[in-house]
Amino acid sequence: MTTTPAIEVGAELPPLRLEPISRTTLALFAGASGDHNPIHIDLDVAKSAGLHDVFAHGMLSMAYLGRLLTGWVPQRAIRSYRVRFAAITPVHGAPTCTGHVVSVEDGLATIELAVTLADGTTTLTGDAVVEID
């Protein structure tokens, strides 16, 4: 039994706090997502590009934010979902996903979304439009 959340302007989605992203998570996500770019999983390649270490796939953070959305409304209600990747998420970064409703109009709610790290860096901003009853 699921309950329909109150969807009104200002409503906050329950934040989704993730554990620090491990190298194992990056390896699993590379395989599961099909993004095998070695820059995310191979320290040698990251160093050859002048980086100190590997960093997380942007789409991993977008998938976490997707969990925030589908944990709040059934997926079939999501009409659109977009993000801008504002900063790299280093390995061991601990993302928190947040969202709040900024408009409700004609049966559609717009949710502003963000992912931030423990040090305050915003790594991703975006929005989603969801259908409401």
């Binding site: 590009a49 942007g58 659109s80 977009r82 990747f85």
Partner: peptide, 14 residues
Amino acid sequence: DLRRVLHGEQSFTY
């Protein structure tokens, strides 16, 4: 060079 590539934005319409 793939090592120089970053993902800037991504959007979906369902």
